[in-house]
Write a protein that binds this DNA or RNA. Structure first.
Lengths: 212, 212
DNA sequence: GTAATTTTCGACCGACTGGTCGGATTTAAA
DNA sequence: TTTAAATCCGACCAGTCGGTCGAAAATTAC
């Protein structure tokens, strides 16, 4: 972790990214714990000692992968959302962007989702903070969409369901198979949005109806 | 694996279930690989050798947990579904039952979902077969619901989305917190069903519309 | 050229893991 | 009470892993 205090040269960062890419692929295929440093060193075409020249631990590789991915996911998101007025369109945009993004960086995404919790607390907290930030941005859009007519608990659940549904695809989606990311993204977006619209009606009716 | 060829006495099965319960809790908390046989022996209040008297490997414990859970999930499902006529009501029933079931056996459910793939192929195939069976039952109901007006690919995707959405809750749901399983189940059911109804309309329109 | 620095190597270490085994202890049978 | 069988124990084994280190090789500076 101390490594990041010193300024990294472009060359160093390039090497680190190479190692991280090879590692992410392995973590995704076999899992973090099942992947040994020897495996990584073979995949990265560098000796084990060579890897430890750039990373001080296996954990640090995982951390590098996850924090870089989350950073990329957060980058420019808020500016992009500002360009859209309608909250419903914003949600559609978020779902499409999210799925497209995760499919494009599928190894890093799956690694972050499935292995991030293996990090020691000091590392994990930073990732969790980034996830929370992303979460809050989306949650805020959803809140706008429901026009405030939704409880905090419900909002939280709906947000989690949205992410859960999107992230669930990485258990089974295989880009080599028939469906393109765009088609898939479209189906999920349609189901979720229709579901949310229905949910909205129900919530708002309940609120304005003030049943006996 | 050979163990299961011989008939188990009630007493043996009880002991095995005890060990499995303790193990499932640990697997769920720390993960399969992070849990050592020593951990299990402490939790099950039995020495390591004692455990190996009932199970021939760590894998076999995981297998026992998963196959038992899947068996329980499949038990009586088809008969229960036969009691319902309307396909839409069947879907609602499946979602509620699924979530309720998983929350009730949360350690075993999460273990099966998240750790099952760590089993060697010979074991995993049996679990996968059970999952496939469950999958097909649900897929069939969905197919009925869409009245056949849905492609095989789409049906597959929709089925996966349904399970993905339901199973996503285990990443974050905490039964000790505010929302009850019934409330949560209701929200998910509503969103998904509304989404599916919307999806149905779109699909059917597309089909009957026969655009140029 | 040579000296200094960075990068790379791979043999090696200690810790830990899943699994074994001979025997101690408990239970059941006679 | 004796004997046999089932149950349980924990020291031990072989193998794997993350990580170290001293030195070789490559690069850069002079």
């Amino acid at each position: 972790m101390e490594k990041y205090l010193k300024q990294l040269t472009q060359k160093e960062l390039g090497k680190m990214t190479n190692i991280a890419k090879a590692a992410a692929k392995l973590f995704n295929e076999k899992g973090y714990l099942e992947t040994s440093m020897d495996d990584i060193s073979v995949a990265a075409k560098l000796s084990k000692g060579g890897i430890y020249h750039y990373y001080s631990s296996k954990n640090e590789i995982l951390y590098f992968i996850s924090t870089n991915f989350m950073g990329l996911l957060l980058k420019d998101l808020e500016q992009e959302l500002e360009q859209i007025q309608d909250p419903f369109e914003k949600i559609q945009f978020i779902i499409s962007r999210h799925i497209g993004f995760y499919i494009k960086h599928i190894s890093e995404a799956k690694t972050t989702i499935h292995e991030g919790h293996l990090l020691p607390p000091a590392y994990f907290k930073i990732i969790a903070e980034q996830e929370k930030q992303y979460h809050q941005i989306v949650s805020h859009v959803l809140s706008d969409f429901f026009g405030g007519h939704i409880s905090k608990d419900q909002l939280k659940v709906v947000t989690f369901i949205l992410f859960g549904t999107c992230n669930g695809i990485y258990f089974w989606y295989d880009p080599k198979r028939s469906m393109t990311p765009e088609e898939l993204s479209g189906i999920i977006r349609d189901i979720l949005c229709k579901g949310l619209l229905g949910f909205e009606v129900k919530t708002k009716t309940k609120m304005s109806g003030q049943e006996h």
